[in-house]
Design a protein around this nucleic acid. Structure first.
Lengths: 249, 249
DNA sequence: TCAATTTTGATTATTTTTGAACGAATTAAC
DNA sequence: GTTAATTCGTTCAAAAATAATCAAAATTGA
């Protein structure tokens, strides 16, 4: 019984019962618990299940109106952990910026019932938050249908009209040398958010840490905190910075 | 029984009964009260329930705003005729304003394949046009979930940044004495569109003609044309104006 | 075959979860 | 108001699950 076969077996059980248990799997597949744990971790890392203490559960079959949601489902479990942590820093009365990344999008379910004001250029975020306790402010300007968001000069000027207590942003890469983006338009929007917020949180899965890609648009000391699933070793590059590091599972 | 499983269980009960009780949950799930309390606190922290003394309550499922599409379906046939006529006046290369009324919304299907630029404050219009030939520009500002549109000071200023060849607008009433609206916010947006467009079309079913309601916000000579299903007799009030009258079936 | 790599298992230390106790805070009753 | 009864959160300890480390077994590729 190799990994591929076990993986299939585990996913089958998951589809039938909705959950699996380490002890039970170890017994049924006649293999050690540590191996089962390694399997579950790998599956969770691939976004195929939610890892729980003692087992795993099926990934939420989220309603998926747009193709955007699928992209967002990559690494769903990790992103949800990051967003759950981020939501702990959002309280009634807050005014926050949210950018148009797929990680930040998953913050929506965790803030739906908070009495806050959200300023965003992301259409999926608007769609997700439009019928809930959140008060919405839409950044105006030219709509980019590929990114499902508003970008450009007018949008940047619009952001400059507002100030928020907190900003929750995604980037394509981050290291001790700064913040990196794959697109000039996104970089400008993110910069604008950083400039207009008192405290900026970066939401980054481990894959983004240490990655320096395409365009550097801000120094690391322009943001205050990073929320990530990366481990200590990977984060050592930030040891000479003032960055607050919030680690999740 | 791990936390995730309990969490789901608690939320299920909450959905059925609307409230949960620490003691009862502890008994039913065969677990200590302190653990239930910790669970409830975490769920409350995630915004999934309201914590009360002794238990928790469902977060109020906010009254859903008007189902925009249904409202738009009232008088659908008439509105479609008006919009078909309006679309005849829109050509490739045009830059047009569209406001947030239910009549104007029905213009969308008739312009999906035109290579034009649409500037709008209406979220339904944005959804409808987001994946087609039309290039979209979103008016920014505070989002009003009841009207499914952006309104307010910033929105008005944003509109003032642009100029368009044509504007397609709805009103709550129109007569030889001017244009009328049921809301100050909508009136201001409509005024802004009128000011920034070279040629303004009013889309009005017969019920709006001659109706003078609540707030007059513009003179009749500020707009250039009206597209309506009203008959000659009802339109006689405009005989002393320069208004172009485009009648449909 | 044999060495290199990968996978698996055992052991140990660490982390997470849970429960009990008790003082503090909140609600209900008077 | 004042008292009594719950309910709550903190602290500590026990139990369970996990991650880290290292060694054994299996697989792979020459």
């Amino acid at each position: 019984m190799n990994f591929q076969k076990r993986k299939q077996n585990i996913l089958d059980k998951l589809n039938i019962t909705g959950e699996v248990d380490v002890k039970q799997l170890a017994m049924e597949l006649a293999i050690s618990e540590i191996t089962i744990r390694r399997d579950l971790n790998q599956l969770a890392n691939d976004g195929l299940l939610y890892r729980t203490h003692g087992g795993g559960m099926k990934v939420d079959p989220l309603a998926k109106p747009v193709d955007f949601i699928n992209k967002s489902a990559q690494n769903a479990a990790v992103k949800d952990e990051i967003c759950r942590k981020a939501a702990e820093h959002i309280h009634d009365g807050d005014i926050i910026f949210m950018d148009c990344g797929s990680t930040v999008f998953r913050l929506c379910p965790f803030i739906k019932n908070k009495k806050i004001k959200v300023i965003t250029n992301s259409l999926p975020v608007i769609y997700e938050l439009q019928n809930c306790a959140v008060s919405l402010n839409i950044i105006g300007g030219e709509f980019d249908s590929e990114r499902q968001a508003v970008h450009g000069k007018i949008a940047n000027e619009h952001i400059a009209r507002y100030r928020a207590g907190k900003a929750f942003l995604g980037v394509d890469g981050v290291s001790q040398n700064g913040l990196f983006a794959n697109s000039e338009l996104e970089a400008e929007i993110t910069s604008a958010y950083i400039n207009q917020s008192a405290y900026t949180y970066l939401l980054c899965d481990a894959g983004k840490i240490g990655k320096e890609t395409y365009l550097k648009f801000a120094d690391i000391n322009q943001v205050e905190a990073i929320i990530t699933n990366a481990k200590d070793g990977q984060l050592s590059c930030f040891k000479d910075t003032a960055l607050a590091i919030l680690q999740v599972k």
